[in-house]
Each structure stands twice: as C-alpha cells, then as structure tokens.
C-alpha cells in the first residue's frame, strides 16, 4: 500500500505549476460558476486528463467534490472525452482532450476548462454534458441492414478506391460532439453528415439511403441542434479533421431524397 504522501509525490522529472479555472455546476442545477484551483508539481509528461485526475485526488483528500468529467479510452478513439479548454473544444491543436499533453502548456499558466454545453447538450454536472441527442440521430438511421445468413465473399462487391477512401474519411468521426460545441449555432451538421456520408457512399448503405438521410436530418432538428451557416468552425475543431464537404453532400442527398420520396431498396449503385 502506497502512503498518501508518496502518492502525491510527482515522479522524478520536470514539473510545472498551473492554475485551473474550472466550471463547477451541481447536478440538476441550471447555473454554475468558475472555481480556481492552484496546482504545483504537475509532471511535465502527464496528459491533460491525468492532470485533472491529480487535481481530483487532492479535492477528494480535502473532502471536496471532485470535478466530474468523462473519459474512456484516453487514446483518441472513443470520443467520450470532451472539454472546452481555453475556449476551444478539445483545446488547441487537432486532437481529443485526452490527447492533450501538459508539456504543451506553459509553467504558471491559467487554464480555463468548461463543458461542451449547447442548447442540445445540457450540462449534467461540471464538465459532463448530455450528448444523447447524437445517439438518437444515429438511431434514426445510422445503420445498414445485414441479413443473418451466410455472408457473401467480401470482394464480390467492387467499390472504387476513391469512394472507399471518401467513406473511410467520414467514418473517422468518433462522435465526440466537438463540432456542435465549436459551432456558433450549435449545429450537429458535421457529425450527422459524416455518418450519412460514411454509410451512404458505400453500396451496402444504398437500400436505406433515402430513408436514412431524411430520418437523420429530421432527428437532428428535433433534438434542437441549430442550423448550418457554413462557418466551417466545426471542421477546424474536429479532432479527426472531417471535412465540411460531407455537409454539402448531406444537403444534396436530403434534397434528392425529398424529391424521390421513399427508399429505394435494391438500388445498389453508390454515387
């Protein structure tokens, strides 16, 4: 068992001091406030979230409520983490919050951390927001039907290389919601369009293509996300660098789906 003292000792190596200005908002409260925490001896090779872990440990030791934040994989693939760091979703640089490193901050810096909150992302507690709106958009159409019998030989459906790449680029979306947090209108267009693009570009996504775009777009509005004004702030904030070209594609697809009406099962041509 490690004594509390050694637990608080940073490992050998360089350390820095930071002031954390964190958004504190109690559960089920509509208002919150900023609280400042002074931290010293933060190891330079800690990650940003490890720094928050250290801060939370000291808070727990003092008998205070730790700062609630979300994380899971801590390697930039699951999209669970998401904090506005110094006014930027996921902080400076093109990465997720969990990929932020303490070495990228200056000794003595004050770092402001806030939740990804928008109208459609209400705060649950502190830095945790309710992003289930994105899940409901996925439920509305982010799937393909696969029959349960024997699977065809994978290479039996030839797909053009450029189309595969395009679909893969869209599929890089980890659903973190940074696009929504970055958008001055709180729009989830980049997220929705990435999912629609990812599935709609591939032959396997054709049967539900029209129904998918209609249901997902309509769900996006029902969830109270704003409209796209083509500011492109989402693209600049996306840790996966997803292009706003998918938004253009979604718009065109939605217009086409409205004109042609119902879904076209059996229409196996990717365009």
């Amino acid at each position: 068992m490690i004594s509390q003292e050694t637990q608080n000792q940073p490992p050998a190596g360089k350390t820095i001091s930071l002031t954390i200005r964190a958004w504190r908002q109690a559960r089920n409260k509509r208002k919150g406030h900023f609280a400042e925490y002074a931290l010293d001896r933060i190891p330079i090779d800690a990650s940003f979230l490890e720094m928050l872990d250290i801060l939370n440990e000291t808070l727990v030791q003092k008998g205070e409520d730790p700062i609630a934040f979300e994380s899971d994989c801590r390697e930039g693939i699951c999209g669970t983490c998401g904090i506005v760091v110094d006014g930027l979703p996921h902080g400076p640089g093109q990465c997720t919050t969990c990929q932020l490193q303490i070495r990228d901050f200056k000794d003595g810096a004050t770092i402001t951390i806030e939740p990804f909150s928008t109208g459609a992302f209400p705060v649950i507690k502190d830095l945790v927001v309710d992003r289930s709106g994105l899940d409901r958009i996925i439920q509305a159409g982010g799937y393909v039907t696969v029959h349960s019998g024997p699977k065809p030989e994978p290479n039996s459906i030839p797909i053009e290389h450029a189309v595969v790449e395009d679909a893969l680029d869209a599929s890089a979306c980890i659903g973190c919601g940074a696009c929504v947090a970055a958008c001055p209108n709180g729009s989830s267009s980049l997220f929705t369009s990435a999912k629609i693009g990812h599935l709609g570009l591939l032959p396997q996504g054709q049967p539900e293509r029209n129904a998918r775009v209609k249901n997902m777009v309509e769900s996006m509005d029902e969830e109270g996300f704003g409209s796209c004004r083509n500011y492109a702030e989402c693209q600049a904030s996306c840790p996966k660098g997803i292009s706003i070209k998918y938004i253009g594609r979604m718009n065109a697809d939605y217009i086409k789906a409205t004109i042609s009406g119902g879904d076209h099962r059996g229409d196996m041509h990717a365009t």
Binding site: A120, N185, E233, A236
Partner: peptide, 13 residues
C-alpha cells in the same frame, strides 16, 4: 440551440 457561448472561434469563419 446556443443559449450561452463561451467557445472562441478558430478563425475558420
């Protein structure tokens, strides 16, 4: 959908 706005722009717009 954007009642509060504390997020800065990245000057993409």
């Amino acid at each position: 959908s954007r009642p509060t706005r504390t997020v800065r722009r990245r000057n993409a717009s």
